[in-house]
Amino acid sequence: MLVLSRRAGESIAIGDDVTITVLDVRGDVVRIGIDAPRSVAVHRTEVLVQVEASNKAAASPDDDVVSSLSQALRKPADEAEAGDEDDRPTA
């Protein structure tokens, strides 16, 4: 990790098209501005972590939900097989 000290109004260039500027420093709060192309994703880390956790939770259903869905999908197949045996012609 590169650690730099900057004062209000000073900037840091990242590559050819990203500039981070220190806008204001008040106590333990630093306001920064980021100038980057729209193709570069810029997110606050705490928000990104929360979104990732939410996406994982949404993509991972409870075991009870999976079990009931599995039973619901098997039930019509079991009923169809039972119906097939009754429809067989007798010799």
Rank of each mutant, 00 (worst) to 15 (best):
L69G: 01
A58V: 11
V47M: 13
V22Y: 03
P61R: 01
R26E: 13
K75W: 13
V22A: 03
D62F: 07
P89V: 01
L73V: 04
V65N: 00
K75H: 12
I20D: 00
D78Q: 10
L69P: 00
V3H: 06
R7C: 00
V42A: 04
V65S: 07
R44C: 02
D62L: 06
L4V: 13
K75T: 02
A72L: 15
T21M: 12
G83P: 00
V51D: 14
D28E: 09
S54V: 01
R6E: 06
K75Q: 14
A80T: 06
E46A: 15
D63M: 08
A8L: 06
Q71P: 00
L23S: 07
R31F: 03
N55V: 11
S54L: 09
V47Q: 12
D87V: 03
I34S: 09
V40S: 08
R44I: 05
P61K: 00
I14Y: 14
A72N: 02
R74F: 08
D78F: 04
D87K: 04
E79A: 11
A80F: 12
T45V: 14
G9P: 08
R7V: 09
Q50E: 15
D28Q: 11
R26Q: 09
V22I: 15
D64M: 13
A57L: 05
I12W: 10
A57K: 04
E52Y: 10
A8C: 05
L4W: 09
S68L: 12
G83E: 15
G15Y: 12
L69F: 08
E79M: 14
V51M: 14
D84H: 04
S60H: 05
L4I: 11
A80H: 02
A72H: 08
D87G: 05
